[in-house]
Each structure stands twice: as structure tokens, then as C-alpha cells.
Computed example of a mutant assay.
Amino acid sequence: MELVFGLVTGVLFGFLLQRGQVLRYDVQLGALRLKDMTIVKFMLSHIMVAMVGIYLLNDLGLVKLSLKATVVGANALGGLIFGLGWGLVGYCPGTSLGAVGEGRLDALAAIAGMLVGAGIFARAYDGLLPTVYTWGDYGKITLAGVLGVNHWLVIAILIVAFAAILRFIERKGL
């Protein structure tokens, strides 16, 4: 049943990516050049919905959160590699798969890059553990936990902040 749920939500997310027009190369390039905020608007909207949904389901006991450790070194290195790949091929992982689904075969370069990168990471993982995975290891933390407040307060503040960012972007016509 979990696999069916994963498939359904994956197809739904892909549909929303396509409908939001974030699969288009020109939108991806516009985001990288800070000229088109379609992707930012799409992601902020989804983050707001997901924050509320995940924490509501968690509070109702329907799901259990599985926090991963916050490791600044690994996050910084991963973000750098992700950003370089996105900048080089013009697609991020989700949008590359969606673009291929739309028939844009240039996105196959991104998929090939992801597969090669995953293979390199798998081979380098043991060497990264004593180095990159120790730089800035804060363990399993949340913003609410660090601040010592209820998670709904943090969610409310983030939603107000994200809504303000979305409004600003809309007013600027981006």
C-alpha cells in the first residue's frame, strides 16, 4: 500500500510540476538568473502546504517524523554539487524527469549526470564519513526544538514570512 501511495503522490507532484510550468528549460534558466520566480513561488507554496500537512498528520499520530541529522559540511557540499549540476544542465532532479516525460530529451543529460553522481557518491561515501560528515554535525534538530517553542508557532511565522515573500515577488512582476 505504501508503494501505491508513493506512486500516486509522485504522479500528482509531477502533474503539478507540469501544470506550474516549472519543467520548462526557460523557466529553470530564469530562476538561475533570478529573472523568473515561477519555481520559487511553486516551491514556497508547496513547502507551506507540506509543513502544515506533515505536522498535522504527526500531531494526529498518523505519521511519525524521521529527522535526519543536520550536518553543515555535508549539506554545503551537497548543495554546491546540486547547484553546479542544475546550472550546467538547466534541470534539477524532479524537473529533469518531468521534462523527459514531456518529451524533452535534452533532460536526459541531467538524468545521466544524476546517475553518475550517485555512483561517485556511493564509492566516496566511506571516505566522506570521517571528514565532511563531521563538519558542523548538530544532530537531529528542528527550528522549534532549538528555539524551545511549539512547532505551530514556527510554522505560523514561516507561513507569514513565505506569504510576504510571495506577495513581494508578485508585486515586482517576477
Score class of each variant (00 low, 15 high):
residue 28 Q to G: 15
residue 90 G to R: 02
residue 139 G to C: 00
residue 69 A to H: 14
residue 63 V to M: 11
residue 147 L to Q: 11
residue 48 M to N: 10
residue 162 F to V: 00
residue 117 G to Y: 02
residue 25 Y to H: 15
residue 87 G to Y: 13
residue 74 A to R: 06
residue 174 L to D: 11
residue 116 V to G: 03
residue 30 G to W: 13
residue 32 L to T: 02
residue 33 R to P: 05
residue 92 C to D: 13
residue 80 L to G: 02
residue 102 E to P: 03
residue 141 I to P: 04
residue 114 M to C: 00
residue 43 M to E: 04
residue 21 Q to T: 07
residue 26 D to Q: 13
residue 107 A to W: 03
residue 129 L to D: 10
residue 3 L to I: 10
residue 150 N to D: 06
residue 150 N to W: 10
residue 85 G to E: 07
residue 78 G to T: 02
residue 127 G to A: 12
residue 65 L to W: 09
residue 49 V to G: 10
residue 107 A to S: 07
residue 6 G to E: 08
residue 26 D to I: 12
residue 153 L to I: 05
residue 97 L to W: 04
residue 88 L to I: 15
residue 99 A to N: 04
residue 108 L to N: 03
residue 49 V to E: 10
residue 150 N to G: 03
residue 40 V to K: 08
residue 54 I to A: 11
residue 161 A to D: 05
residue 146 V to K: 13
residue 56 L to N: 08
residue 151 H to A: 01
residue 100 V to P: 03
residue 38 T to R: 15
residue 72 V to W: 10
residue 121 F to L: 15
residue 101 G to L: 13
residue 34 L to R: 08
residue 23 L to E: 09
residue 117 G to F: 09
residue 115 L to Q: 05
residue 21 Q to R: 15
residue 17 L to H: 06
residue 174 L to F: 14
residue 127 G to D: 11
residue 164 A to Q: 11
residue 17 L to T: 09
residue 168 F to H: 07
residue 121 F to S: 06
residue 30 G to R: 13
residue 52 V to P: 11
residue 148 G to V: 13
residue 100 V to Y: 02
residue 62 L to I: 12
residue 52 V to Q: 07
residue 86 W to Q: 12
residue 161 A to I: 05
residue 31 A to E: 12
residue 74 A to E: 08
residue 74 A to G: 02
residue 21 Q to F: 03
residue 68 K to C: 08
residue 111 I to P: 00
residue 24 R to V: 13
residue 99 A to K: 03
residue 35 K to R: 14
residue 137 D to A: 11
residue 155 I to V: 07
residue 33 R to Q: 11
residue 151 H to F: 01
residue 10 G to V: 06
residue 32 L to N: 08
residue 111 I to M: 00
residue 55 Y to P: 08
residue 172 K to T: 01
residue 27 V to C: 04
residue 146 V to W: 14
residue 53 G to S: 02
residue 163 A to D: 06
residue 168 F to A: 03
residue 85 G to T: 02
residue 16 L to S: 14
residue 90 G to H: 10
residue 21 Q to G: 11
residue 115 L to P: 01
residue 5 F to Y: 05
residue 78 G to K: 01
residue 75 N to C: 09
residue 51 M to Q: 13
residue 169 I to R: 04
residue 48 M to P: 06
residue 139 G to P: 03
residue 44 L to V: 01
residue 106 D to C: 07
residue 96 S to A: 01
